[in-house]
Amino acid sequence: MFEAIAFYLFSILTAVMFYITVTTKQALFALTALAAGMIFISAFFFILGADFLGVVQIIVYTGAVMALYAFGMMFFDTTRELKERSGSPLITAGLSILSAVFVVLIFVAPIVSTKIQVTAPLIAGTTNSQSIGMVLFTKYLVPFELAAVMLLVAMIAGIVLAGKKMDRSLTLMAEEEIMIAEEANRKVLL
């Protein structure tokens, strides 16, 4: 009973938040609605008994990813209204729903035809985080280490890409220096 109420409440909230994210013209509204939607998604994980996944969702998505987006948006001009691709919204909506259903069919069809085999069963007498630790550090150890290396590579790439020319500050430079720097930048582009 309560599970059903929670499911319907959170699914409506999540769908509304994500709909605001994809339709609003204000970048800040989109960011805030996306953060709220991520929090509501974690509620589903708690309902499904995946406690650890829910906590990771809150910490990583709303804590790290959204904070990174918020920092990134300081670089961009977010006060301007966003322009969107012209075209019939009905056709776009129809195409996206159709392709989503097709994607689900493509992935579900083999499952339905050959019955899912349980490969990593829940271990009796352990909590969710304990059993996740047991499976993660035995069966999925190599992918786990690879993910760690991938995160390290991504961190270095992010620093290198975003940190270029961070040593000069436009607010501390004189007007002429900025003009010279912009002129040099334009010559590089041409």
């Binding site: 969107e84 075209g87 919204p89």
Partner: peptide, 26 residues
Amino acid sequence: TVLFSIGLLGVMRRKNLLMLFFATEI
């Protein structure tokens, strides 16, 4: 599926690349 189609809707109609990233997260 519903959330996935909302995300696809965003990918199809957004022009701003940052908003496209948001749709990918969805």
